[in-house]
């Protein structure tokens, strides 16, 4: 069984703000199943900007991205890359 979640850290200065969340949600919505963003014990739908914002991720926040279906592995990788890249900011 391949890994279905990745741990990342928010590196951009402004945290996970609306525009960054929009980029992430854009990718997540391409997935076949729900993509989850998890901070602590709070899990939200990564396809919703507003849901992502409710996590309140500031710079340095650890975040777990999880997929429910192996077919979305590509999505998981793209999101992890986006976050590691500081959302291209």
């Amino acid at each position: 069984m391949k890994e279905t979640s990745k741990h990342v850290v928010i590196t951009n200065e402004l945290g996970l703000h609306a525009r960054a969340a929009a980029k992430m949600a854009d990718i997540a919505r391409e997935a076949e199943s729900t993509v989850w963003a998890i901070k602590g014990d709070h899990a939200v739908d990564a396809g919703s900007i507003i849901d992502l914002l409710t996590l309140g991720c500031s710079e340095g926040s650890p975040l777990t991205i999880r997929i429910d279906s192996q077919s979305d592995l590509n999505i998981l990788n793209r999101i992890a890359l986006l976050i590691e890249d500081g959302f291209g900011e």
């Binding site: 945290g15 703000h17 609306a18 507003i50 914002l53 309140g56 500031s58």
Partner: peptide, 21 residues
């Protein structure tokens, strides 16, 4: 309901930005 949700966020900066949406 969303506003209520956002108001509970601990980080003041994020809270205000989020409320903007």
């Amino acid at each position: 309901d969303l506003q209520t949700l956002f108001r509970r966020m601990p980080d003041a900066y994020l809270r205000e930005r989020a409320a903007d949406v």
